[in-house]
């Protein structure tokens, strides 16, 4: 029954690749910030699923820290784009 986790993870990796297309194409800087934020969310979801697939709790702990740090980086990018930094 461990295959379904890897199937779901491969779908999520395909979604990350699609978001990378928008990261490259994005006509304005805010578009690229949106794509980066989406990629961060999907990476957290992928890490949680991999934590179950390999039965390692450390993946989920890293996912928590990654979610909080990516939030901080998104806020800083947003402040820079808004010209307040």
């Amino acid at each position: 029954m461990t295959e379904i986790w890897f199937i779901a993870v491969s779908f999520l990796v395909a979604f990350i690749a699609i978001a990378c297309i928008r990261l490259v194409l994005g006509p304005t800087p805010p578009d690229r910030a949106v794509a980066l934020d989406t990629i961060n969310t999907l990476i957290v979801a992928t890490m949680i699923l991999l934590g179950v697939a390999y039965r390692q709790l450390i993946f989920v702990d890293v996912a928590i820290v990654y979610a909080l740090l990516s939030f901080v980086s998104t806020l800083y990018i947003a402040r820079y784009l808004g010209g307040e930094l």
């Binding site: 805010p30 949106v34 934020d37 947003a78 784009l81």
Partner: peptide, 8 residues
């Protein structure tokens, strides 16, 4: 991000 986009 929405606020920054409108400001820029």
């Amino acid at each position: 991000i929405a606020r920054a986009a409108h400001r820029s």
